[in-house]
Design a protein around this nucleic acid. Structure first.
Length: 624
RNA sequence: GCUCACGUGGCGGAACUGGCAGACGCGUACGGCUCAGGACCGUAUGGGGCAACCCGUGGAGGUUCGAGUCCUCUCGUGAGCACCA
């Protein structure tokens, strides 16, 4: 699949998304856009040219050799008789190396001279052509112009094989020019001498273009996507082959369902397992079905669209449903996508690509699939290591749910710490949350003589006291805001504060408890609705169901105290405190602070150099 | 090697634009209730000191009346990338 055709859009349209900066960076690096030029080098005594990609066309005069990737197709053509044995040996050795070995950075540079030469288009000089495994066939053109003076790898290579080194960039600082890879002033380069790197790049690229020797070019690390697998599991392609040409099935033949296979293991012949389904692959007397299947990414690229309209029989998603769920003001459709960092590049890039294709075809209303992305941290085992069978530290949610219930499990997961952070599991922690929920239960339930739970007589239809009202509204505010910011741990803390404040009160106002249960319900839905029902047996309410209640709103006015505590500091250290009416002015606060007995004692014999007053907060007395 | 993130009690973690460090939970100690408790309730709990006080957010500097929070350097942990021309 030609994902590279979308490289630039995949890069630029990241901008408008609310994604973690780290993930955006990973995607940018993965796409790996580099701007530069391609330059054609004539091969001495041959018709062919070797094309190289460079981000530094301004260093062309410093190009003293060419290096081809060992797999480069032109090698067969240019190698001289006497160099063939060495070249052949080197290529075989390279072919045996794994990707990892080849990427081994610490190893010394290796390579072999081909015996052939190329002509540097800038100065018409003959330069040797080498092959080396530090040049990769898959990136750029698979060939580079070696500029040893201004590229670390080329320098290492030139030193090892005693190739000439020509300095062509003068650093602006006092650094030595040899080995300088930054931007400077062009030297020893007649066409561009004296120009800054940026200008030199432009001028020499234009110069090359005018002579048909090269042109400006952009290269991406991103490769096209090999979208087929030789295995049974995976969506079959709706394609058949006839006379060596492929055709798509007609829409009436969709969906295409894979055949049932007894044995879906690999064939061992290089044919995909689907080839075993002899009847299935025979599409007609003349045509056979495609036997490759799609990779697992296929489904993950559009499942979120199907979720918008899962029962639709005629279309992958109905137009109206798509507009409703995926529309909106912002670039992306899904409002919030919570997932792991392991999907930073593959899944999230592939899905963006598919979505853009569908967008271009007019099937979806937004160019991006996921507006806001949050990476949840992974949960470690109790020993602080990644959960794994190897360590025997795996926690099975079903076991936890069986023992403590789904509410305690959910709440503990949320209470553990910030969503995005990696954190260790703790059974003691689950017990703590289980105790909290038990306290919620006992907040409004009593056990009678027969050992049955019933609504406590403490729950009464009375108005909350002032302090209770304040706690209630502080809880509404905190829980509401914390849900918005996904700070579930602190939302639960606040609900614990609420319960602690009410559990020993002689009477528990129904109105406060109702509000509390609404706040609790997204966290612990089972116990919240159970308690709601118990309350409803005695205190009716409309609408009746917990899930039909509107979300409470807090009253800021109830949170403000008429009196505040002012801390008194001496040189920034807290020494005393007093209460003052809210809004007391600076002069009053200063005077009160200075009049405190403790302050008089502490400041005796000292000069006050400065007094800092922060209204409603503190007075800081600075002595010299 | 490069890039990014993160370092706060015995543990998980709180702390809005710089303004009482340690909310909440776990653990621990003591007490109560109990035939019993790995249940429940209460009290205490950063370190040192009899105390007044002193010290404390990985370490060292700096800015500021005041720094967990801002700046510089440094150490550690984790994740990602890894000859990308």
């Amino acid at each position: 699949m030609r994902i590279t055709a979308f490289a630039d859009r995949l890069l630029h349209e990241l901008e408008g998304l609310d994604w973690p900066a780290g993930i955006k960076l990973l995607q940018r690096n993965w796409i790996g856009k580099s701007e530069g030029a391609v330059i054609d080098f004539k091969i001495d005594k041959h018709e062919q040219k070797i094309r190289v990609f460079t981000t530094r066309p301004d260093t062309l005069y410093g190009g003293t050799f060419l290096v081809l990737a060992p797999e480069h197709p032109l090698i067969d053509l240019i190698v001289t008789e006497e160099q063939w044995p060495a070249i052949r040996e080197y290529r075989e050795k390279t072919a045996r190396k794994s990707e990892l070995e080849r990427a081994e950075l610490t190893k010394e540079k290796t390579g072999v001279f081909t015996g052939a030469h190329a002509i540097n288009p800038a100065n018409e000089q003959k330069i040797p052509i080498w092959i080396a495994d530090y040049v990769l066939l898959g990136y750029g053109t698979g060939a580079i112009g070696g500029v040893p003076a201004h590229d670390e790898r080329d320098l290492e290579f030139a030193k090892k094989f005693d190739l000439p080194i020509v300095e062509v960039v003068q650093p602006l600082s006092n650094e030595p020019a040899l080995g300088f890879v930054g931007e400077g002033i062009a030297i020893n380069s007649p066409i561009i001498d004296g120009l800054t790197t940026a200008k030199a790049k432009k001028k020499i690229t234009k110069w090359l273009e005018e002579r048909g020797k090269g042109k400006g070019a952009i290269n991406y690390k991103l490769r096209d996507w090999l979208f087929s697998r030789q295995r049974y599991w995976g969506e079959p392609f709706p394609i058949f082959w006839e006379n060596g040409r492929h055709h798509s099935l007609s829409e009436s033949e969709l969906p295409l369902v894979p055949p049932e296979l007894e044995d879906y293991k690999p064939t061992g012949t290089g044919e995909p397992p689907l080839a075993k389904a002899k009847d299935w692959i025979r599409y007609s007397n003349k045509a056979t079905r495609e036997t490759n299947t799609m990779p697992q990414w296929a489904g993950s690229c559009w499942y979120y669209l199907r979720f918008c309209d899962p029962a639709n029989e005629s279309r992958f998603v109905g137009e109206e449903a798509e507009r409703y769920w995926m529309g909106g003001k912002q670039a992306g459709g899904v409002d919030l996508y919570v997932g792991g960092t392991e999907h930073a590049v593959l899944h999230l890039l592939y899905a963006r690509f598919w979505h853009k294709v569908l967008f271009d075809l007019g099937h979806v209303s937004k160019p991006e699939p996921f507006q806001r992305l949050v990476n949840q941290g992974i949960i470690l085992g109790e020993d602080n290591r990644k959960m794994s069978k190897r360590w025997g530290n795996v926690i099975d949610p079903l076991d936890v749910i069986a023992e403590y219930g789904a509410d305690a499990f959910r709440c503990y997961e949320m209470f553990m710490g910030p969503l995005e952070q990696m954190k260790p599991w703790s059974m003691k922690g689950v017990e703590g949350l289980s105790r909290f929920l038990a306290r919620v239960w006992r907040l409004l339930m009593d056990e009678n003589q027969a050992g049955e739970w019933q609504l406590s007589p403490r729950v009464q239809d009375v108005a909350p006291e002032k302090s209770q009202r304040k706690t209630l509204h502080a809880t509404i505010k905190k829980v509401t805001e914390d849900i918005e910011s996904l700070s579930f741990n602190t939302a639960i803390s606040q609900m614990m504060v609420f319960v602690n404040a009410f559990i020993n009160a002689p009477s528990v106002p129904v109105s406060a408890i109702r509000t509390f249960l609404i706040l609790l319900s997204p966290f612990a839905p089972h116990i919240a609705s159970e308690l709601w029902e118990k309350m409803r047996e005695k205190f009716t309410v409309t609408p009746a169901d917990l899930t039909d209640q509107s979300w409470p709103e807090h009253d800021e006015g109830l949170l403000v105290e008429d009196e505040v505590e002012i801390i008194v500091q001496v040189n920034g250290k807290v020494r005393d405190r007093f209460r003052a009416p809210l809004g007391a002015n600076e002069e009053e606060l200063k005077a009160t602070a200075l009049g405190l007995p403790k302050m008089r004692e502490l400041l005796a014999g000292k000069q006050i150099a400065k007094v800092v007053v922060v209204p409603n907060k503190l007075v800081n007395l600075v002595t010299n």
